[in-house]
Design a protein around this nucleic acid. Structure first.
Length: 893
RNA sequence: GGGAGUUUAGCUCAGUUGGUUUAGAGCAUCUGCCUUACAAGCAGAGGGUCACAGGUUCGACUCCUGUAACUCCCACCA
C-alpha cells in the first residue's frame, strides 16, 4: 500500500467515527465495572459550535476516552438546553422577519413556531461535535424540555413550594425591557457606562426663595419622585427637613426627609427618592412609608397610569410612550427651560445590563415567584461544606473561594420569567386571586375536588432555564421522573464536570444544591473549570469583533486532531487560553511527523532479518551489545517512565502538560532519537525482533495519545499491523518499572551526540564528511554499549580509546571525558580555546558559589546531611571537570 | 468600595513541602543542511539580575511585608 506524502485527515475522520459508532463503542449500559460519567453542559438548543465548546468538549472527550481505555465504563451524555430567554429571543426575531409579532400569537401558536425552530436548528451543534470526534453516548441525548424532564421540573417546583421554599411576592426585580421579563441577579451584568449627573433644583412649595438641589443620573424618573432625602447630620439641610418642595414639571408636593442612608459628600448631599425605580429608594420608601409611583411600562417607556390625575399636564402627556433614554434628554431640556437645571457633569457609573439582550436593566416592582435560598441551603449543610472539604473538588481550587463567597451572600432567586418557551409555572389562580399550586390541573382537581367548579387560570409565566438545568446530572438518567432506576443508581453521582467559570453560580452551585436536596448526595466528584478562549491579543471572542474563528472551517483545513491538539497544547488549567492558529499548524505538523514515521516503518517491514528473540537486559553483555537491541531496551524504559508521568498528570487534570510530554516523547525520543538509532543503512535489513519492538512501541505511543488525537492514532494503529481490535476500546496495560540504569546511559549518549555535533557545526565540518573520534575516559566500559550508535549519529568512521591527547585534533570536553576529533578541516584552535575557556569560567564561578556555601559554618551546621552531601559532590565534580579542562587547554599550547 | 488571582526567555506557560550543578519546555529567532520517513523537515545555537523594594534564613523563583501593573469575582453612593 502506498501512503500519501502527508497525513490527510478528512477521509479518515469520517471513516473512523462511523466505525466507532457502528460498533457501539460510545454506548454505555450499567455493568460490573466502575462507572466514569460525564454529563455534557448542554449547549443552547439553537447554538452553533464555537471555540468555547471546542475547548470544553475536547477536554471532556479526553477524559472520557482515557477512562474508557482504563477499562472503566465510560458514559458521556449529550444534550441541549432549551435556553428559555435566548431561544425565545431568536424565535421572536425570526417571526419579526416574517412580519409576525409575538403579541399577535396565542401561546400555543407561538410554541408551535418555537418547536419547529428547535427541530430545525436543535441538532446542529450536536452534529458538529461528531466532527470533533466526541465519543458521546448518543442514545442518551437529552433535552431540558423532554416530556419527562418537563414533568420533573414541575414536580420539583411543587415540592419546593410545599416546603415553603418557593413563594410568590411583590418585589423589586431586575427587569429587562427588551425581552420584557424579570431576571435573576446572576443574569445582570454590570458595565461601566459614561453617563451624566444632572443637578436639578426642587423649589420650595411655600413659594419662598430657593429650593433644594439634587444630583441624579436619571432625571426621567422624576415624575415618580415622592420625597427628597438628606443625611440627618448634614448641616446644610438641617433647617429644611420636613419642608415641602415641588417636583419639577409635575409640581407634586413632596417632603424633605432625613435618613442615614444618604451620604453627605456625594453630589449635593440630597437624594431624590423614587421607590418604583430603584432598589435602595424602594427600601427607603418602605421605611418612610412612601408611595411607589411607577412611571415606566414593561418596555421602559413613560406611562401616566399611576400618576395623580390632577397633576397631569400637557408636558407630561407629551411624554407618554417615550422611551426612557429619549425621555432623559427631553426632560433635561425641559427642566433647563424652566430654570431648574443647575448643571450637567460627566459621570461614570456602573449600570446593570441583561446578560442576554444587553438592555439596561430597570429595577421594577413586580409580582414574581422566588426561591428562598437561605432557607433552602439550610436544609442541607453539605451544600456549602462539600466544596469546602473537597468532597467536590474544584480545579483550579481557587474557584472554591468564589463559591463560598456566593453561598455566604446568597439572595433569593427570582425564578419566574415572562416568557413562553420553557416550563410553565404550575400555579393556577381563581378570580378571587387565590393561588393553587399542583403538578397539573388534574392533580389539583384530584387533591382539591372543590376546584373542579372554579374557573381557574394558569400562570402565564415560565421558569428560569437554570431552574431546569440544575437537575441535569440526575434527570438525564431519569433520576427525578423515575427514581431509583438502574441508570441513576449506577451513573450518579457523576464523575467529572467540565464547564466554564462563568456559570459557577448559574449552574454549578445550583446543581450541588439540587444534588443534595433531591438525591441526598453530590452531583459530581471533580469540577474542571475551563478558562475563556480569547484571541491572540487577549480579547474575548465575539461576533462584533469578528475574531471568532470558524471552527468547522478550521477542522476542514487542519483536521479535527490538529484542532484538538492546538486548543489543548496551550491550555493551562483554569486560565484563559489565548487561541492562536499557529498552534493548529503545530498539530497538523505533528500529524505529519507521525505519518512519516509510519512510512519509514513500512519501508522496513519487508526487509527484516530473523535473528531470533530480542535479548533481555540481563543477557546482554556490555561488550557485545547490538545497537538496535540496546535502543529498544532504552525506549522500553523511556516509554514506561513517561506512561507513569502522564498517568500522574492526568490524575491531576494537567491535560495540557500531559499532551506536551507525549508530544515530546513521540517527536523527540521516538522519532529523533530512537528511530535514528535503529534505522538500518540504505537498503539494509533491520533485525526482525527490533522491528517488531518498534511497531509495538509505536502502537503504545498511539495508545497514549489516543484520548487527545483519536483519529490519527486509530488510523496509525491499524496501519502498523493488521488488527482485530480498535484503539478506541483498547485497555491500557499498567506501566512497568523503568530501568534507571539504561535511562542514565541514554542521557549520557544524547549529551555526547549533541556535544560532538555541536563541535562539528562550530568547526564547519560538512555533514557528509566522516570524522574519527578518540575518547579519553576512565570508564571505557560504559561507552562500549553505546559506541556504535554514537559513531553512526555523528558520522564517525571509528571510535578508539586513548590515554593521552591526540595531536592535530579538535579537542572537546563533555562531562568528565575528553574527545579528540580527527577531521580533514583546518583546525580552528582559537574557537576551541574560547569554548573551553568559557566553560572553565562558568565552572569556576560555580565552584566559588559552592565553596562559599561549604565554607559557611552555619550552613554546614544547619543543612540536612543529604543536602550537604550533594554540595560536596557538586564541589568534587566541578573540581574534577576544571582539572580536565585545564589539562586540555594545557595540551593545546 | 470589598475579595481573589496573576507578574519567570520575544510569545504561551512549567517550576511540587526553601538546597538536585548560578531556572526548564513549546513556539518564534539565528546558523548550517534539499542526508533515501518527514523542508509542514533535520542538526545545532543564542536568549531570563524569576515585576519592584524591603524582610526572614546559612541559603529565596519558592516564605513574610509593602509597592506597581494587569485580570477576574462580588457590591446598584444617587
Amino acid at each position: 500500500m502506498e501512503l500519501s506524502k502527508n497525513f490527510e485527515p478528512q477521509a479518515i475522520e469520517q471513516k473512523w467515527y462511523s466505525h466507532w459508532m457502528n460498533n457501539g463503542y460510545f454506548k454505555s449500559v450499567p455493568d460490573e465495572r466502575e462507572a466514569y460519567t460525564i454529563v455534557m453542559p448542554p449547549p443552547n438548543v439553537t447554538g452553533v459550535l464555537h471555540m468555547g465548546h471546542c475547548l470544553n468538549n475536547t477536554i471532556q472527550d479526553i477524559l472520557i476516552r482515557r477512562a474508557r481505555m482504563q477499562g472503566k465504563n465510560a458514559c458521556w451524555v449529550p444534550g441541549t438546553d432549551h435556553a428559555s430567554i435566548a431561544t425565545e429571543a431568536k424565535v421572536v426575531a425570526m417571526l419579526r422577519e416574517r412580519g409576525i409579532t409575538k403579541s399577535s400569537l396565542s401561546r400555543e401558536e407561538f410554541l408551535k413556531y418555537a418547536w419547529e425552530w428547535k427541530e430545525k436548528y436543535g441538532g446542529i451543534i450536536l452534529e458538529q461535535l461528531k466532527k470533533m470526534g466526541c465519543s458521546l453516548d448518543w442514545d442518551r441525548t437529552s433535552f431540558t424540555m423532554d416530556p419527562d424532564y418537563y414533568k420533573s421540573v414541575i414536580e420539583i417546583f411543587v415540592r419546593l413550594h410545599k416546603d415553603g421554599i418557593i413563594y410568590r411576592g411583590l418585589r423589586m426585580v431586575n427587569w429587562d425591557p427588551a425581552s420584557k421579563t424579570a431576571l435573576s441577579d446572576e443574569e445582570v451584568i454590570f458595565k461601566d457606562i459614561d453617563s451624566k449627573l444632572y443637578y436639578v433644583t426642587y423649589p420650595f412649595a411655600d413659594g419662598s426663595e430657593g429650593g433644594i438641589t439634587v444630583a441624579t443620573t436619571r432625571p426621567e424618573t422624576i415624575m415618580g419622585d415622592v420625597a427628597i432625602c438628606v443625611n440627618p447630620t448634614d448641616e446644610r439641610y438641617l433647617n429644611m427637613i420636613g419642608k415641602e418642595v415641588l417636583v419639577p414639571i409635575i409640581d407634586r408636593k413632596i417632603k424633605i426627609i432625613a435618613d442615614e442612608y444618604v451620604t453627605a459628600d456625594f453630589g449635593t448631599g440630597a437624594l431624590k427618592v423614587t421607590p418604583a425605580h430603584d432598589k435602595n429608594d424602594n427600601e427607603l420608601g418602605k421605611k418612610h412609608n412612601l408611595r411607589a409611583l411607577n412611571t415606566l411600562d414593561e418596555e421602559g417607556k413613560f406611562t401616566l397610569e399611576e400618576l395623580e390625575d390632577d397633576l397631569i399636564n400637557d408636558t407630561i402627556v407629551s411624554y407618554a410612550g417615550v422611551d426612557r433614554f429619549a425621555l432623559r434628554k427631553k426632560i433635561a431640556v425641559d427642566i433647563e427651560a424652566i430654570g431648574l437645571l443647575q448643571k450637567i457633569e460627566d459621570y461614570k457609573s456602573q449600570v446593570g445590563t441583561s446578560e442576554r439582550t444587553g438592555a439596561v436593566i430597570e429595577s421594577r416592582l413586580s409580582l414574581q415567584w422566588f426561591m428562598d435560598m437561605k432557607k433552602f441551603i439550610a436544609t442541607n449543610p453539605d451544600i456549602a461544606a462539600a466544596v469546602a472539604d473537597e468532597r467536590i473538588k474544584f480545579h483550579p481550587s481557587k474557584a472554591k473561594n468564589t463559591y463560598a463567597h456566593w453561598m455566604d451572600n446568597i439572595k433569593d432567586w427570582c425564578i419566574s420569567r415572562q416568557l413562553w418557551w420553557g416550563q410553565q409555572i404550575p400555579a393556577w389562580y381563581d378570580e378571587a386571586g387565590n393561588v393553587y399550586v399542583a403538578e397539573s390541573i388534574e392533580a389539583l382537581h384530584n387533591s382539591q375536588p372543590e376546584t373542579r367548579n372554579i374557573q381557574l387560570f394558569q400562570d402565564e409565566d415560565c421558569l428560569d432555564t437554570w431552574f431546569s438545568s440544575w437537575l441535569w446530572p440526575m434527570e438525564v438518567f431519569k433520576g427525578i421522573s423515575n427514581p431509583n432506576n438502574a441508570d441513576i443508581n449506577y451513573y450518579y453521582p457523576t464523575t467529572t464536570l467540565v464547564t466554564g467559570q462563568d456559570i459557577i453560580f448559574f449552574w454549578v452551585a445550583r446543581m450541588v444544591m439540587a444534588g443534595y436536596a433531591f438525591k441526598q448526595t453530590q452531583p459530581f466528584k471533580d469540577v474542571y473549570f475551563t478558562g475563556m478562549v480569547r484571541d491572540k491579543q487577549g480579547r474575548k471572542m465575539s461576533k462584533q469583533l469578528g475574531n471568532s474563528p470558524d471552527l468547522l472551517g478550521l477542522i476542514d483545513q487542519y483536521g479535527a486532531d490538529a484542532v484538538r491538539f492546538g486548543i489543548m497544547i496551550a491550555s493551562p488549567a483554569g486560565n484563559d487560553i489565548l487561541f492562536d492558529e499557529s498552534a493548529l499548524e503545530q498539530g497538523r505538523n505533528f500529524n505529519n511527523k507521525m505519518w512519516n514515521a509510519v512510512k519509514l516503518l513500512k519501508m522496513w517491514e519487508g526487509r527484516t532479518t530473523d535473528d531470533g528473540q530480542l535479548k533481555t537486559n540481563d543477557n546482554i553483555g556490555l561488550w557485545s551489545v547490538d545497537s538496535g537491541q540496546w535502543s529498544a531496551l532504552w525506549f522500553e524504559a523511556r516509554l514506561n517512565e513517561v506512561k507513569s508521568e502522564v498517568n500522574e498528570m492526568l490524575n491531576q487534570f494537567k491535560l495540557s502538560e500531559a499532551l506536551k510530554v507525549i508530544y515530546s516523547l513521540i517527536w523527540d525520543d521516538f522519532c529523533s532519537w530512537y528511530l535514528e538509532w535503529v534505522k538500518p543503512g540504505f537498503e539494509q535489513p533491520i533485525e526482525k525482533a527490533v522491528y517488531e519492538k518498534t511497531v509495538e512501541f509505536f502502537a503504545s505511543l498511539m495508545e497514549l495519545l489516543h484520548p487527545f488525537m483519536p483519529f490519527v492514532t486509530e488510523e496509525i494503529y491499524h496501519l502498523l499491523q493488521d488488527r482485530t481490535d480498535d484503539l478506541c476500546t483498547h485497555v491500557y496495560a499498567a506501566p512497568l518499572q523503568a530501568d534507571e540504569k539504561i535511562l542514565a546511559e541514554a542521557v549520557l549518549l544524547k549529551n555526547i551526540i549533541s556535544g560532538l555535533r555541536d563541535v562539528r557545526n562550530k568547526n564547519q565540518v560538512k555533514p557528509k564528511e566522516t570524522i574519527k573520534v578518540h575518547i579519553q575516559t576512565a570508564e571505557a566500559a560504559v561507552y562500549k554499549s553505546i559506541e556504535s550508535i554514537l559513531a553512526k549519529q555523528i558520522n564517525s568512521a571509528s571510535i578508539t580509546y586513548v590515554n593521552d591527547a591526540v595531536a592535530g585534533t579538535i579537542t572537546t570536553v563533555i562531562g568528565k571525558d575528553k574527545f579528540y576529533i580527527e577531521t580533514e578541516q583546518p583546525l580552528n584552535m582559537v574557537g576551541q580555546r574560547e569554548d573551553l575557556e568559557k566553560e572553565l569560567a562558568h565552572l569556576k564561578g560555580f565552584l566559588i558559589s559552592v565553596e562559599k556555601k561549604l565554607g559557611n559554618e552555619k550552613f554546614v551546621a544547619n543543612a540536612k546531611p543529604e543536602v550537604l552531601a550533594i554540595e560536596n559532590k557538586k564541589k568534587a565534580d566541578a573540581e574534577e571537570k576544571i582539572g580536565i579542562i585545564e589539562e586540555s587547554l594545557g595540551g593545546m599550547e
